[in-house]
């Protein structure tokens, strides 16, 4: 059973390596953002399997944390690519 868990960890690491290829080579920024999002999701899964492999519950907060960070990073990068800025600054011309 531990062997299958270890095999799953190796497969997830292979998936992360494949996404890393797309991050390095991707012709447009959107390719890199999509690959980085997939890397974040796969890292969260890898951490969960590592928690099952070591039979320790200490990793489980990390799964949620990595997921939130990957999602926020993807949203920020996509907005930056689309509009050139991440946050909408308050407009001074409206007079408030």
């Amino acid at each position: 059973m531990q062997t299958v868990l270890l095999l799953s960890m190796v497969l997830l690491a292979l998936a992360i390596a494949g996404c890393l290829y797309r991050v390095l080579k991707g012709p447009s920024i959107a390719d890199r953002i999509a690959a980085l999002d997939t890397i974040g999701v796969n890292v969260a899964a890898e951490v969960a399997v590592a928690g099952a492999y070591t039979q320790s519950t200490a990793y489980f907060e990390l799964v949620l944390l990595i997921g939130i960070l990957a999602f926020l990073g993807t949203v920020a990068l996509a907005r930056y690519m689309e509009r050139g800025k991440v946050l909408d600054a308050p407009d001074d011309s409206t007079g408030d």
Partner: peptide
């Protein structure tokens, strides 16, 4: 894990 590998392959 196999589905993740397939996803990276498609990527």
């Amino acid at each position: 894990a196999l589905l993740s590998v397939l996803s990276a392959f498609g990527l």
